[in-house]
């Protein structure tokens, strides 16, 4: 398990996703956002370096991003999104490159689907005070049709909340959360593709204290993997933070948690800032935005 020290009373995470096709263009913006914060941990939440088939080119693009993320000495971690598949490298090969640059993400257990399902333990005075859990949320649904052998004659009906067909965090990954989570320790969850519950937030604005904008359909998971309900049920999960969308940028409260969807960093230059602290011994979360 990766460990990171909580040096101040606040533990600050910057989350960005979808950095676009050019690392040269994304890196200065990322560095600016990081310097404005500065964070303890930078999470590159999927679609990081996309569209590169040459391993050397990939490595140099990844190192530009890693250098920007670490501009103030913060650690960084990655999760994989749907477009990270569109490189010539497998997710495992990409992770090896990121890890060589100091990335905290670990490959994860073999019998759980995906690459990079892992927990980063945040320690203060030798004790774990916060867990940051990362998931691979896979790609488009075609992947699971192929994987699970669902007959092609059963066309996918339109999901309830969007017309995109996304895979998302699978049930066996939800099960991993349920089995390995310590309910005494607060947790933050990060992955690329929002859950169906994220997509319900804008439709329930007054109930959930909706904060932000919805400009387009939420590109959420098509077949619900049970993650949001399980996290709400566990009670120690403070927030679930996703990306995938281009312009949507919102937070909302549901099931005792903060759910967030950040916009594409390449499109908007916006990062989500997630600050964890304790108030009278009670875990506290504060969320906001930084625009580079």
């Amino acid at each position: 398990m990766s460990v990171i020290e909580m040096k101040r009373d606040i533990f600050c995470v910057i989350m960005v996703h979808s950095l676009g096709g050019s690392a040269e263009r994304a890196a200065p913006g990322l560095e600016k956002a990081v310097r404005a914060s500065p964070p303890d941990l930078v999470i590159l939440n999927g679609d990081i370096v996309c569209g590169i088939s040459d391993p050397d080119e990939f490595a140099s693009a990844a190192s530009l991003i890693a250098r920007a993320a670490g501009a103030t000495g913060a650690k960084f971690a990655v999760t994989f999104g749907d477009r990270d598949d569109k490189n010539g490298l497998t997710r495992a090969d990409q992770l090896a490159v990121y890890r060589s640059l100091g990335c905290l993400t670990e490959a994860g257990e073999d019998d759980i689907d995906g690459v990079g399902n892992c927990v980063i333990s945040v320690k203060k005075d030798g004790k774990t005070v916060l867990c940051v859990r990362l998931f691979d949320s896979h790609a488009e649904t075609t992947a699971y049709e192929r994987e699970y052998g669902s007959p092609s004659r059963s066309r996918l009906p339109y999901p309830l909340y969007s017309h995109y067909y996304m895979d998302g965090v699978r049930f066996n990954q939800t099960m991993w959360l349920r089995r390995t989570c310590d309910t005494e320790i607060p947790e933050l969850l990060f992955f690329h593709i929002p859950t169906p519950e994220h997509a319900q937030l804008p439709l329930n604005a007054s109930q959930v204290g909706f904060d932000g904008v919805q400009c387009e359909e939420v590109r959420c998971q098509t077949v619900n993997g049970g993650l949001s309900m399980t996290a709400a049920d566990l009670g120690n999960v403070l927030g679930i933070f996703c990306g995938n969308d281009e312009k949507n940028d919102f937070f909302g409260h549901w099931g005792g948690m903060t759910l967030g969807v950040a916009p594409s960093f390449a499109e908007t230059g916006t990062a989500h800032l997630i600050e964890f602290s304790r108030n009278d011994g009670k875990p506290c979360l504060h969320v906001s935005r930084i625009t580079a």
Binding site: Y144, Y148, G149, S150, R170, F171, N172, T174, P196, V223, N224, G225, G226, L227, S228, M229, T230, A232
Partner: peptide, 14 residues
Amino acid sequence: ALNPGLFRAIVERG
């Protein structure tokens, strides 16, 4: 209104 992922688990197990 809360989805525990039973249908998803069924799809995954096949």
